[in-house]
Amino acid sequence: MRDRLLARLLGLLGIAAVLGAWELAGRTGALNPVLVPRPSLVGQTLWHILSSGEFLGPLGHTLLLFATGYGLACLLGIVLGLLMGFSPALYGLFEPLVELIRPLPKSALVPALFLFLGIGPATMVTVVVLAAVFPVLINTLQGVRGIDPVLLDTARTFQCSRLRTLLAVVLPAAMPMILAGMRVGLGLGLVLVILAEMLAGESGLGYLILDLQRSFQIREMYAWIAILAAVGGSLALLFDWTDKRLVPWRGRA
């Protein structure tokens, strides 16, 4: 317990040391103040953006696109993964296609989708879906295939229907793997939505950050990157927190 407290303290010290060194380097002129404004100045700008509520628009825009795409990807990945895991015929049908599309760097598809779907929310959502669906799908599939056959046999012994077996036996057993896939998809989806916004240049966090850099509003740019980092961090923390409560049986298989 004391050890953990000490670890926390040291961690805060590490972060404080980096910020302090940065501030000092800015004040003494070791760092170019135009390119890297001092953290205190960035902090002021950040506070201004936060307190004026300015952040709600772009943040909401990005998060909405992300959440829609991510939700669709999870749904699609889990359903398809369960079906492929359950039915050898469907597995044989879809596996080669999945293996064909999976190694594609999804970022390379962004310009192709712009051409095809035009620049707009539909494209952004598609991009996120493409990025997040494969980790979910693959993990679901492996989760289903890795199920202890005894569990399935037991369900059969009790004459559980297929649907009931799926919902009460297969899904909980595969849940840790599915969530691990969703965790990977979360990071990938966020990366792709930011990239797509940067390339499409209309609105959202990604567009804003690139635009601020191009118009040389450096402080604002750093402030928005900090906001983005906070969003990414909170999403990951939120996920891990939910994960712990959803599958307390993780690692005890």
Binding site: G187, L190, V191, I194, L195, M198, L205, G206, I209, L210, L212, Q213, R214, I218, M221, Y222, I225, L228, A229, A230, V231, G232, G233, L235, A236
Partner: peptide, 10 residues
């Protein structure tokens, strides 16, 4: 947690 594309502009 900063998505990689966001690191490019600075």
């Amino acid at each position: 947690p900063i998505p990689i594309p966001a690191i490019v502009p600075p």
